[in-house]
Deep mutational scan, measured.
Amino acid sequence: TSEDEWQCTECKKFNSPSKRYCFRCWALRKD
């Protein structure tokens, strides 16, 4: 669900929880 998505701190895109990197800008997920 969208509620589980995380928001990239670099480009603000919301990504799948299973992705460690942002799909748009490839920044590593910040915990």
Score class of each variant (00 low, 15 high):
T1P: 01
T1G: 05
T1L: 04
T1H: 00
S2F: 07
S2N: 14
S2W: 07
E3R: 03
E3G: 06
E3I: 08
E3S: 08
D4A: 05
D4T: 10
E5H: 11
E5K: 06
W6S: 07
W6P: 07
W6M: 04
W6G: 04
W6C: 06
W6V: 06
Q7E: 11
Q7G: 02
Q7A: 05
Q7T: 02
C8T: 00
C8W: 06
T9H: 10
E10S: 11
E10A: 04
E10Y: 12
E10R: 05
C11P: 01
C11W: 01
K12H: 03
K12V: 02
K12G: 15
K12Q: 10
F14S: 06
F14R: 07
F14V: 13
F14L: 09
F14G: 03
F14T: 14
F14D: 04
N15Y: 05
N15T: 11
N15R: 04
N15Q: 04
S16R: 03
P17E: 13
S18N: 05
S18G: 08
S18R: 05
S18K: 15
S18M: 05
S18Q: 08
K19V: 08
K19H: 13
R20E: 15
R20H: 14
R20Q: 15
R20M: 12
R20Y: 14
R20G: 13
Y21D: 13
Y21Q: 15
Y21G: 10
C22R: 01
C22H: 01
F23V: 10
F23S: 11
R24K: 08
R24G: 11
R24H: 15
C25H: 05
C25E: 02
C25Y: 00
W26R: 15
A27T: 09
A27C: 03
A27D: 07
A27R: 06
A27Q: 10
L28Q: 11
L28T: 14
L28W: 11
K30F: 08
K30I: 09
K30D: 14
K30R: 12
K30S: 13
D31S: 08
D31R: 05
D31L: 02
D31F: 03
